[in-house]
Amino acid sequence: MDNFLKILSDNPRLSNAQIAAMTGLSEDEVGERIASLEREGVICGYKTVINWEKLEQTDKVTAIIELKVTPRKDTGFEAIAEEIMSFDEVESVSLMSGGYDFSVCVTGRTFQEIALFVAKRLAPIDSVTSTTTTFILKKYKEDGMILSAQSDERGADVL
């Protein structure tokens, strides 16, 4: 099964028939397996990795916000995480070890918009004790993909 997931994760644009050829399963079996992995929540979704900086008018700013919180008595970190992840601006939320508690990735159109979002939405949350906002200036690699165009330098005249 791990191998099956690796194939899916590495080759999201292949058809079920192509995956069937690669795995030795039938096309129907591939379809059923994917459906069941989706139902079980193993496969959470499909996305396209885009290098937004390539577009001429980029109106997308991303920041990583480090949150320190006081865990709540009954629900610990869970309820706080749920509150944070409910905002559309939030791309990802992770509980961290080390110097702070949550790492929150936030996107917006401008630096200002993100600063306001932090001030008006995140900071006021009950149990948040401090926020540190760090803006991303340039992305080099995302989801395992190198974002700059890479050329194949292999010798084309070698057989």
């Binding site: 194949d152 292999r154 010798g155 084309a156 005249d157 070698v158 057989l159």
Partner: peptide, 19 residues
């Protein structure tokens, strides 16, 4: 190969070495 070298956006399946 000389023709290929002059072209843009060539997609090659010709190389005999590992990627």
């Amino acid at each position: 190969f000389d023709i290929a070298a002059e072209m843009e956006e060539v997609i090659s399946l010709s190389v005999g070495e590992p990627d």
